[in-house]
Design a protein around this nucleic acid. Structure first.
Length: 638
DNA sequence: GTAGGGTTAG
């Protein structure tokens, strides 16, 4: 027996156990009172304590029985103790309980949860058919699902049907999560029908799981339809839908649903707040996020690492780097997600040096970076112009950390080289890619061509990108703007014809400002806001002030000459005017935009900032902002 | 007196 195995079940010192077992239990030679205590502890999720009682029981010479093992095994499973689990298996065999269905099922489960799926299968196969109840199948199916052995889970389900073993709600709960796999969406639909047929859909847990399955497949609409049909929603139901919206980038519906949930009298938990915070990060809804943080503190969820990571992300994305750093520094145990969030935060705001420093610190602290951590540091390098540093990291990725760069890393590198004017190197890098370049890679090259006014290469990049993403309007606009700067009217016309043929319309740009816990959203030329008159009056004043300073009206490059669309007053200008109208003189005004900020607006805002002596932050949210469900009207927000 | 399951961050 290995020393590790021995240590895992070694009896504890008696002093430690005083609070766990009463003298009466200690004095008893019968198994029953020990089992009762074991059950109590396991049911309260005090698994380490339950195992202590089990060890003590052996020490006192009390024999475990079929009522002991399920609780002891469950504790091993919860604590992921494979050695203790296999040692318990020996005890089970010794006591002759191996074929007790309850013990059998617990054994399968403990092996599955510890990742020893083949041992679980052996236990399953070693028992007679009559011992195999639905629960045994359920435990193994869930185990296969947990260990990503999708086809094994599905074939075991087939076996159940073939042998006529009863299928119940828990069978479905094990199977439904694997239907998120694109290859098994068909199974998900079949299972849904199956649930309805045998009436399992009324079980709240199954309904929750179905909602999750649909939203994880990206079908938020089906998920929501099902959600609306559930009459008595519990916390997990709300969380499934809230997390589903959050994962699909539908931030505004998350906040709506969160409020609805509260008005239904359901109290949020840590999972709810993770979804809410990530949506605040998407929307730049700083004060909603702060409000959520207060509630998190009031509810005692402060030590939850998921929540802390979500808080870092939210503060960083909302521009409050100081607070993000404070949360990060306050975390007793930081994982790679915590580091990635803070590095990404510094990167987004152009603090490349700080991001790089943090990345090095992370490595020093012994945390191994993953693919996402590299995305955040590489994009930080590219935004801050740290070309050499970025190249260094990129080469270390594979050589030092054994991580195969994906298209997302290559697009960062193309962006990095492209911004630095090394267009040929960027092109060569794409040519050398061992993986197929995606739209973002060619798109990064196209973007670089705009900066460095290289029409010839832009045409090549455009040809490639449009094959991969023929309906992405952004690339047509980019090429059109490149032609526009080169005064190539023929080119502009060609792009317009292509867009017309494909029936593409420019996505409406929108900007938004957060004020008193509400997000105020403006489209270009928007006149639906309740302060429209004041806003336009304010803009008129600003325009004349700017005109006085520069002597001429700021030329709107994007909208002069050949126009792609009649956009009216730019949305960021409306948002700035709204901010000036409603915030106190010293306060910084943070404007978020879903598309890239156009050069004309940039100039206008810079000038206004100087003239009125106010600090503006206009965030280009293209890199992380998704309105997949289409644009919400302003009314949805106030 | 006992077992199987669902929601979570970059």
């Amino acid at each position: 027996m290995s020393t590790r195995l021995k240590a895992s079940l070694d009896p504890c010192k008696p002093a430690k156990l005083l609070h766990l077992i009463t003298p009466k239990i200690a004095a008893s030679s019968s198994t029953s009172p020990w089992n009762t205590r074991l059950r109590e502890l396991a049911n309260q999720s005090l698994f380490a304590e339950a195992l202590s009682v089990y060890r003590q029981m052996l020490r006192f010479g009390v024999s475990p029985n079929a009522f002991t093992f399920p609780f002891a095994l469950k504790s091993c499973a919860a604590l992921t103790l494979p050695f203790a689990g296999s040692q318990l298996h020996c005890h089970v065999i010794k006591s002759g309980c191996e074929l007790e269905p309850f013990v059998l099922t617990s054994l399968i489960s403990v092996y599955c949860k510890c990742g020893l799926i083949d041992s679980a299968r052996k236990v399953f196969d070693g028992s007679g058919q009559s011992m195999k109840l639905t629960v045994c199948y359920n435990a193994l199916i869930a185990g296969y699902a947990l260990n990503s052995r999708v086809s094994n889970a599905v074939s075991l389900f087939g076996k159940m049907r073939e042998l006529g073993v009863e299928i119940n709600a828990v069978t479905m709960l094990g199977l439904l999560p694997i239907c998120v796999d694109p290859g098994y969406v068909w199974l998900g639909m079949c299972l849904h029908c199956c649930c309805v047929k045998i009436g399992l859909d009324v079980a709240l847990s199954v309904a929750n799981c179905l909602v999750t399955m649909y939203v994880k497949c990206g079908s938020v609409v089906y998920g929501r339809r099902l959600f609306d049909l559930i009459p008595e929603k519990e916390l997990i139901t709300w969380n499934a839908m809230i997390s589903g919206y959050a994962q699909n980038g539908l931030a505004a519906p998350v906040l709506e649903l969160y409020r609805e949930m509260e008005s239904c009298g359901v109290s949020p938990d840590a999972v709810t707040f993770v979804g809410v915070l990530s949506s605040c990060a998407h929307l730049g809804a700083h004060s909603v996020g702060c409000e959520a943080e207060q509630r998190i503190e009031a509810n005692g969820f402060v030590l939850n690492p998921f929540l802390n990571n979500a808080l870092i992300n939210m503060y960083a994305r909302c521009g409050n780097l100081k607070k993000a750093r404070a949360v990060f520094d306050g975390m007793p145990r930081k994982n790679v997600v915590s580091w990635t969030a803070i590095i990404g935060g510094y990167g987004i705001h152009g603090h490349g040096e700080a991001a790089v420093q943090l990345f090095d610190e992370m490595i020093k602290s012994g945390i191994k970076p993953d693919g996402t951590a590299f995305v955040s540091v590489l994009s930080a390098c590219s935004h801050a112009g740290l070309t050499d540093k970025g190249l260094e990291y990129f080469s270390a990725m594979e050589k030092k950390y054994g991580l195969q760069p994906g298209p997302e890393h290559y697009s960062c590198m193309v962006d990095l080289l492209g911004r630095a004017g090394q267009l040929n190197e960027a092109w060569e890098l794409i040519e050398s890619m061992p993986v197929e370049p995606d739209g973002a890679v060619w798109g990064a090259l196209l973007g670089a061509c705009k900066i460095h006014k290289n029409v010839e290469l832009a045409e090549l990049a455009f040809e490639k990108v449009i094959k991969l993403e023929p309906t992405n309007i952004g690339y047509y606009v980019l090429l059109s703007n490149i032609y526009s700067e080169a005064r190539n009217l023929e080119g502009i016309k060609r792009v317009r014809v292509m867009m017309r043929e494909k029936r593409l319309k420019k996505d409406p740009g929108c900007s938004y400002v957060e004020f008193k816990g509400r997000v105020h959203l403006f489209m270009a030329g928007d006149k639906s806001h309740y302060q429209t008159t004041e806003i336009y009056r304010m803009l008129d004043e600003l325009e004349s002030l700017v005109q006085e300073v520069v002597g001429t009206k700021v030329i709107d490059q994007e909208n002069s000459g050949e126009r792609l669309a009649d956009t009216g007053v730019h949305s960021e200008k409306l948002a700035i005017a709204f901010g000036l109208l409603n915030t106190s003189p010293g306060a910084e005004i943070v404007v978020m935009k879903n598309l890239r900020i156009c050069g004309d607006c940039h100039l206008f805002i810079k000038l206004v900032s100087k003239i009125v002596d106010r600090q503006f932050v206009v965030r280009d949210a293209t890199r992380f902002h998704h309105f997949k469900g289409g644009f919400c009207s302003c009314k949805d927000y106030w």
